[in-house]
Design a protein around this nucleic acid. Structure first.
Lengths: 250, 250
DNA sequence: CAGTGGTCTAGACCACACT
DNA sequence: GTGTGGTCTAGACCACTGC
């Protein structure tokens, strides 16, 4: 550990706790600590990195604020996971107009297709691949209370998701992102979404069981793993007749 | 200042810094420090509240994370304001598909109406008013680069917005929320939004200069001032042919 | 009980802005 | 230089969890 102030001219000053944050991040990326696992205590990390507990604390605070770690008083600090979270779907902002998300329970999934294709220019750009690289393409419908509510097209880098099958997509109980963690070691930590109102194609309307002119909410999501590496492009069409997309601003 | 651990059984333990946070909040609500102003230094506040600087620091950290305060190293801590912020519209998530928001500059405003009406049941519920209470209703169109892009209906409690005129809505240069701060002492600190895809009415289509079947993004926003008191209901219709609603998840 | 994270303090020093 | 927020440390004690 080098203190930044000793690095010379225009040292691009980086506080110690930021460096510690980086080191902890390395542990997460490298898989030293896996999703759901307990990381060493603040004191242990402080000893390992030769800094005070307070410095480790500040580093962990920021990682917890970014949802990469979860602190539990009396127990320790855990690596966040898309599995076993109280919120079933961490990235899904669709809420029922009446009632609570918990009442609906998990969505019913219907996988329509899952195949390997060459990335289009657009998909390649979104996933930072060379166009022509293989991607896994999945199409599925999610239903709440028997009503098909979401039609999703998902593109994943073929490299990282070798061996992903339709069966796997259909059978895994729990969030898809949890399956990605478990079966492929791919952890989504952040996502950007672009929303638009669109008119569905006839096929899209059919799959969602709506009339041909029903406006739908188009949600284009790019999900990133560590270091802002994009690992998923997902285009969702949401029915918003009984649900809405919820967002909080501050 | 009473330390919470001395309060007796099930003391509903509240850390000191939370109490300090509350006291600073009081100063903000009461108008002791107004938007854009400098608040006392950490040392001064520590002396006033008889706690250490570190405790004040943690309180301010949380308020800054909530966007109520802005820290500027070497200068001091300022009360956040919707005016003079680098981001012109803090709550507006509509972005151009190509290029940057800054290139577009501020939106052109056209006020269509501004009048006092009795609150409908729905508006009354959203603003926690008795139905029948007077509200100010504003309808306006915002245009980017000459293209009408947003149609907004705004409802404000008549009580707090006495004297708001069409002129004022039209003439103020800068974010509307900044005008609310300056002229009415109403500071919006947080907002909830519900998004849907809808088909516009013929009038809405006319005002936004789109065809009758063009799907639009409906954004229903409730903006809150301190203590989660709702102070504005706003229903926006966004054209999403050249723009999109942007959101980040983590 | 021991071990964890959570709070609070006091003091030292650094980076930044203004004068 | 002075004053501000920002970092780092060391130590004490509190609250929660599980043995």
């Amino acid at each position: 550990m080098t203190h930044p102030s000793s690095l010379g001219e225009t040292p691009a000053f980086s506080p110690l706790y930021q460096q510690i944050k980086g080191l902890i991040l390395q542990g997460l990326e490298s898989g030293e600590w896996k999703p759901g696992e307990l990381i060493p205590s603040e004191m242990e990390l402080a000893a390992r990195f030769r800094v005070s507990q307070g410095t480790v604390r500040k580093a962990i605070d920021e990682l917890a604020a970014d949802n990469l770690l979860m602190r539990r008083q009396g127990k320790g600090t855990f690596v966040s996971t898309h599995a076993e979270q109280q919120v079933q779907y961490r990235f899904l902002r669709l809420r029922p107009d009446r009632g609570d998300t918990s009442e609906e329970g998990p969505a019913q999934r219907r996988i329509i297709e899952c195949r390997r294709v060459r990335a289009s220019a657009e998909v390649g750009r979104a996933l930072a691949l060379r166009s022509g690289d293989v991607v896994v393409q999945v199409r599925r419908v999610l239903a709440f209370a028997g009503t098909p509510s979401i039609l999703e097209d998902i593109w994943l880098p073929g490299q990282a998701f070798k061996g992903l099958t339709m069966q796997q997509m259909a059978d895994y109980v729990g969030p898809t992102y949890a399956m990605f963690e478990l079966d492929f070691g791919v952890r989504m930590v952040r996502a950007d979404e672009k929303l638009r109102a669109i008119t569905p194609s006839s096929e899209q309307a059919r799959l969602l069981e709506v009339g041909p002119c029903t406006p739908l909410l188009s949600v284009e999501r790019i999900a990133y793993t560590y270091n802002d590496v994009p690992m998923e492009l997902r285009r969702g069409l949401y029915r918003t007749d009984t649900h809405h997309y919820h967002n909080t601003l501050n």
